[in-house]
């Protein structure tokens, strides 16, 4: 087999949770371009439909949208059932749900708990039930989408000219949720590995179009490659981890950050 064929996702079925958040559009486009049959699931039906329409205009087809409220075991069981019936097999699962976090540092207990029920409890229940599908199949690749906060603390100096972004990023549970994936993928890789399925995480840098200029300059100054992430960077990493090109890689967090966390 030609090595380039290992990157092909032709004939594979991929499900993306919360694709309407940052990175989701590029991830969906990348998986489509590599040949996968892509499905969406999540709470925001309108957001997912709008994204599917944009992708359609760009020449990509989304095969189906499954409404899924993460956070309850019964909902995860139902998702698993629907996936088995409608998709048949699940080759690739991409969790892009860690972008709905608290804003700002100080919160009451109820707000913290409710947010974590969706982002932590919901994640575990989804992984449990979709993992059982992959275990039964004897193959599959799970990918958790995170960002560089999984690997380093934020640099206050990057936010000097962008107080709004400071408020968004210095959220009480930002590093908590983004960083929870790093060892969870190692743990999940243990169970899934016994069934020939894999689990990895991607720690992306911000996309150029998603951050204010003042922040961009500061971030770029601290990176080795002197630029922010592009759509191509997002697509290539997820296709690599989704495909057989990474068949012997499991339990890792892949930084895609221009070397930001390398110094």
């Amino acid at each position: 087999m030609n090595i380039l064929d290992c990157f092909s996702l032709t004939g594979k079925k991929a499900l993306i949770y919360s694709p309407q958040y940052i990175y989701g559009e590029e991830i969906a486009a990348g998986l489509c371009e590599a040949g996968a049959e892509v499905w969406f699931c999540g709470e925001d039906k309108d957001g997912m439909e709008a994204l599917a329409a944009r992708l359609h205009d760009a020449g990509h087809q989304i095969h189906g949208i499954i409404t899924y409220h993460q956070g309850k075991e019964s909902n995860a069981e139902e998702l698993s059932h629907v996936v088995r019936i409608k998709m048949g097999t699940l080759d690739i699962y991409v969790d892009n749900g860690s972008n709905s976090l608290l804003k700002g540092w100080v919160h009451g207990f109820a707000a913290i708990y409710e947010n974590l029920k969706r982002t932590q409890l919901g994640l575990m229940l989804t992984v449990k039930h979709l993992g059982l599908i992959m275990a039964a199949q004897g193959f599959g690749s799970m990918i958790f989408v995170s960002d560089y906060a999984a690997l380093v603390g934020f640099d206050r100096q990057n936010y000097i000219n962008t107080p709004e972004k400071f408020e968004q990023d210095f959220s009480l549970n930002y590093g908590f949720v983004k960083g929870s994936y790093v060892n969870y993928v190692r743990q999940a890789a243990g169970y899934l590995g016994e069934h020939n399925a894999r689990c990895n995480c991607i720690a992306y840098a911000p996309l150029a179009e998603n951050v204010p200029e003042g922040f961009s300059k500061a971030f770029i100054r601290h990176s080795h490659l002197k630029r922010l992430a592009t759509a191509r960077d997002i697509k290539a990493a997820v296709v690599f981890l989704a495909s057989d090109a990474s068949a012997y890689i499991t339990g890792i967090t892949l930084p895609v950050d221009g070397g930001y966390t390398a110094k």
Binding site: M124, Y174, G175, F176, G179
Partner: peptide, 27 residues
């Protein structure tokens, strides 16, 4: 009980949050 979900997730979160919170509280 080896492949439980919550312990690895929570302890991983604490390690990452330690860096996050250190950035916030350092000043």
């Amino acid at each position: 009980g080896a492949y439980s979900h919550d312990y690895a997730l929570n302890k991983s979160a604490i390690t990452a949050w330690t860096r996050h919170a250190a950035s916030y509280y350092g000043k």
